[in-house]
């Protein structure tokens, strides 16, 4: 018979390296037509990081995502970056980019201030314009300011900056310290169906509520969460590298190493928990890794709810779950026996 169950997985996860320095640098150049070019040493590994980083630069300069072209991944031309690891790109590289864009913007403001008869501190960059705070009617197109800076004043609006998350060493004896600058939190809740005759587990539904600080690009955040869940489903139910008694892997291929296909995926609802981290770029933290963290826990708790067996070693394959169900039945029968 098929039995349904629900289970929760809740987690916390840090952004960036554990204590160790993990800086990123960035350069932002505003072109004479008001568009911008961003140089970053990070590499797009599929998450959409370059899009998000472009959005951060654009936000700071008051221009649109499409106005920023991102140059990345060439050690000869792009500044150093610790790279796409530890869910740090949006937070650490993002902070560096925001600082770099701020510096480029300062040059624009210094150039624009006399043109608008105000002090640079009275200016803001909004909607492709440099305008006077509280008096938006007085403004100049950013293109005009950039052209003036570049061609008339000889002050190219280029900014470079670096960011490294502040941490405090951990005491070697007690581990006390501040290993990370910030953390994210998340909950996933799974609904599963367990066939108690075969041990087969189907994940039917997953509701996922993730904190990532400000979602710079909600569409890409959703993509990360959905992808993380698929990796979590594989970790929970299917994937395992197996070795023979001589330490040689016996399933080094995708025929025998089973990973999730489109048929294994549950229906997913994603919620982004509203949050703002003052230390992140525009309040953002990160989302990449945490998405794969609570999935297996949620699924195993749902299996427990469905058929009352506790999987203590992953993956929860059908054989393993069936064995646990049989053991449980045998135990129940034993307990019943004296009464007979």
């Amino acid at each position: 018979m098929k039995q349904k169950g629900k289970g929760i997985g809740c987690m916390w996860y840090p952004i960036g390296f554990t204590v160790a320095a993990n800086p990123s640098a960035a350069t932002v150049k505003v072109n004479e037509d008001g568009t911008a070019t961003l140089l970053t040493g990070t590499v797009e590994t599929g998450q959409g990081s370059l899009t998000v980083l472009g959005q951060i630069a654009a936000e700071e300069l008051g221009i649109s995502t499409d106005d920023v072209h991102v140059v990345s991944a060439d050690t000869d031309t792009t500044p150093m970056d610790t790279g796409a690891i530890a869910s740090r790109t949006t937070y650490v590289t993002g902070n560096a980019i925001k600082l770099a864009a701020e510096k480029a913007k300062e040059i624009l403001f210094e150039v624009a201030a006399p043109m608008l008869n105000v002090k640079p501190s009275q200016l803001e960059a909004v909607d492709r314009k440099v305008q006077v705070k509280g008096f938006p009617q007085r403004n100049l197109p950013i293109s005009e300011v950039a052209l003036q800076a570049q061609f008339v004043q000889g002050r190219p609006p280029i900014g470079s900056a670096s960011f490294n998350p502040p941490t405090v060493d951990m005491d070697p004896e007690t581990g006390q310290g501040k290993p990370f600058s910030t953390y994210v939190y998340a909950t996933q809740i799974a609904e599963v169906e367990v066939d108690d005759e075969t041990g087969q587990v189907d994940v039917l539904y997953m509701s996922a509520a993730h904190d990532c600080g400000t979602a710079i690009n909600p569409m890409l955040v959703e993509g990360q969460i959905q992808g993380g869940i698929s990796m979590g489903v594989g970790f929970a139910l299917q994937e395992e590298m197996l070795f023979d008694e001589k330490g040689v892997q016996i399933n080094p291929n995708l025929t025998n190493y089973i990973m999730p296909t489109s048929l294994d995926m549950p229906e997913i609802d994603v919620d982004i928990v509203e949050n703002f981290d003052p230390t992140g770029p525009f309040g953002a933290k990160g989302v990449g890794e945490p998405t794969a963290v609570p999935t297996a826990a949620a699924i195993c708790n749902a299996i427990f709810d469905a058929v009352g067996v506790r999987v203590t070693s992953l993956p929860a394959t059908a054989e393993k779950v069936l064995k646990l169900i049989k053991e449980k039945r045998a135990n129940e029968n034993k307990q019943l026996a004296p009464a007979e």
Binding site: K6, T182, Y185, T187, S207
Partner: peptide, 17 residues
């Protein structure tokens, strides 16, 4: 810890579920 939203995430996921 700052900007902590564990409970919010629990409640949001539970409500959606």
């Amino acid at each position: 810890l700052e900007s902590v939203v564990v409970r919010d995430s629990l409640e949001m996921a539970a409500e959606r579920f």
